[in-house]
């Protein structure tokens, strides 16, 4: 008798599983897939998402980086290199100025330590997550734009 019970209970348990898969098969509304390149226009990443480091510039092509290299020190794996030069201000003081802000995307782990350490909010992460390039050297980026200067308040 336990032989037949065994067969019956097994069949019931298997049918239960088939009921579940059958439910999902007949309810296409449950499909969770999002088709990525097609939904590019509607794709909205949360504003905290960290995809790529950028240096925001205002309309007069001015950034907020004072060249203090705090981000370079904070970075755990040498992603950032800040090159600076010394400028003599009108009142004859020597001041550090940003020359080139090099960001190596290929080494970045997106840990946010550089942004946390920045005293003047000069850099931030954007949501542009499509990083693929055809050449490796394209991953090394210069973040400050050509001819840009530092904002007046940091001068």
């Amino acid at each position: 008798m336990s032989y037949i019970e065994n067969i019956l209970s097994t069949s019931v348990s298997l049918l239960k599983g088939m009921k579940m898969t059958g439910y999902y098969f007949s309810h296409p509304k449950e499909i969770y897939t999002r088709q990525y390149p097609e939904n590019r226009k509607t794709l909205k990443l949360p504003e905290r998402f960290r995809a790529e480091l950028t240096m925001p510039h205002d309309e007069f092509n001015r950034h907020r980086c004072s060249g203090c290299t705090a981000c370079e020190i904070a970075c755990p794996n040498g992603t950032i290199k800040v090159l600076t030069y010394m400028e003599t201000t009108p009142d004859n003081k020597k001041k550090k100025r940003l020359d080139t802000f090099i960001y190596r995307l290929s080494m970045c782990t997106f840990c946010n330590l550089c942004v946390d350490s920045c005293p003047s909010d000069a850099i931030k992460f954007n949501q542009h997550f499509e990083h693929s390039v055809t050449e490796r050297k394209q991953l090394t980026k210069v973040l400050n734009r050509q001819g840009s200067t530092v904002t007046d308040e940091l001068k």
């Binding site: 949360p46 905290r48 998402f49 782990t109 997106f110 840990c111 946010n112």
Partner: peptide, 10 residues
């Protein structure tokens, strides 16, 4: 996690 922490895994 993505919304609060900024990343999905690490």
């Amino acid at each position: 996690f993505e919304e609060t922490c900024g990343t999905r895994l690490t």
